[in-house]
């Protein structure tokens, strides 16, 4: 190759590189700007007049939300069904008949819910007794630790939330959750929802979802739907408040939690 041609090629190469590079930087900076916009403060930054964002005056507040499930009060099949259906209906949980199902609140026999609490001589009927399961809202949630985008995060009141707008669907949180509480939308869930509740968004394919203690209801001043439907079999309250109903109940009853040895500190207590 003669030197002129080489110089020309080098020039072309460098300039193409510069163009691509600056395009990339431009894209990155606009993406970063978008990132700050997401914070909500961009409205003011742009000189636009706008209002302020506050939490609702009627919102329920707590240091750490928790739930006690009084298994003594779950007797008939209907006691479980009421709680599960209440959740399924208001949260648009699809009914997918395959292994790619979605579950927020569901039941498992005692021996599956507490596999480490097994023995051959268990109290009659306990081995197969259905246990209501849902996200444990851990104090030290492994799912939050592993999430690469912050799409799942812990609120100040202890609720482990999902940001469906941010989730990239890597499913690392599902591998990390020791309680099997998370579901992934392998497909568009809408065709599997019998009746769409218009007050709550459905999810889209490709994101992970789970129970979030009805954060949207707490923020409006309402108790979680399952608690409301349980006729007092589930007690919901603030663990940080020694006078709360849940603390009173826990102080006078024997309670267990799932896999306490993992140190995640679940916020769901089961009273036997």
């Amino acid at each position: 190759m003669d030197s002129d041609k080489r110089r020309f090629l080098r020039f072309m190469g460098i300039s193409t590189g510069l163009v691509i590079g600056s395009g990339f930087l431009g894209g990155l900076s606009s993406a970063l700007r978008l990132g700050t916009k997401l914070g909500g403060s961009a409205l003011a930054a742009q000189g636009a007049v706008s209002g302020s964002l506050i939490s609702s005056p009627s919102a329920l507040k707590a240091g750490r939300w928790a739930m006690a499930i009084d298994l003594r009060k779950f007797k008939t099949n209907d006691d479980y069904r009421r709680c599960i259906d209440a959740c399924d209906e208001i949260h648009n949980i699809p009914d997918i008949p395959t292994g790619q199902e979605i579950k927020w609140v569901w039941e498992e026999p005692y021996e599956n819910a507490f596999p480490e609490q097994q023995n051959h001589y268990l109290e009659k009927g306990l081995k197969d007794k259905p246990i209501l399961l849902m996200c444990n809202q851990c104090e030290y949630p492994p799912c939050v630790r592993v999430c690469p985008t912050g799409a799942t995060f812990k609120r100040r009141d202890g609720i482990v939330m999902m940001d469906y707008h941010r989730c990239i669907g890597c499913r690392y949180c599902m591998a990390a959750c020791p309680y099997g509480s998370r579901s992934f939308n392998f497909q568009d869930p809408r065709p599997f929802i019998k009746h769409i509740c218009p007050d709550y968004p459905t999810r889209t394919k490709g994101v992970v979802e789970k129970c979030d203690f009805c954060a949207e209801r707490l923020d409006k001043g309402l108790l979680p739907a399952c608690v409301e439907a349980s006729n007092g079999a589930m007690v919901f309250g603030d663990l940080d408040d020694p006078n709360s109903d849940i603390r009173k109940l826990l102080s006078k009853s024997f309670s267990i939690r799932r896999k306490p040895e993992l140190g995640t500190q679940p916020s769901i207590f089961y009273i036997l």
């Binding site: 742009q46 469906y164 923020d219």
Partner: peptide, 22 residues
Amino acid sequence: YHMQMLNGWRNAVVRDYKTTYV
């Protein structure tokens, strides 16, 4: 600005549990 506003809203509601706009 409705798009920026809605974008700000969705983050405020989901991530900062602020649900009310004044």
